[in-house]
Amino acid sequence: MSRNVTVTVNQSEHTCEVEPRLLLVHLLRENLGLTGTNIGCDTSQCGSCTVLMDGQAVKSCTVLAVQADEANITTIEGLAQEGELHPLQESFWEKHGLQCGFCTPGMIMTAHDLLSRNPDPTDTEIRHGLDGNLCRCTGYHNIVTAIQAAASSIRS
């Protein structure tokens, strides 16, 4: 019943033999050891498991690994380039956009998608852009500030 799945994750290619029911998030976390992507619910609401799949934010708990065959995936571990934090990572740190940090990788990946569609969002657009990501610690206040700061840093 197992199938081979080939995925490029954070620019390196992996082929894994998986059961069809394996979820992408488990492929990333357990087969590839990339545990930065978290699992916070079982109904596709919380967004903690968000990764970029072919450049778009997806909930990796709601994608079968077999559906990701031949896809290009970026996880939180792949965001910093050559030791330089991504502006979103920088700004989440700078603006205290995280507390327990559990939602943070997913939050940052969704923000990445958001800014790629809308490089200069309003606060309201940011808030709606985060409809698929729940945070229980920050009240979102500093997350919005952080994304604004990152947007401004990326634009310049």
Partner: peptide
């Protein structure tokens, strides 16, 4: 519909 991630898939 849903949220950005859901709309993407």
């Amino acid at each position: 519909v849903g949220d950005q991630q859901v709309r993407n898939r």
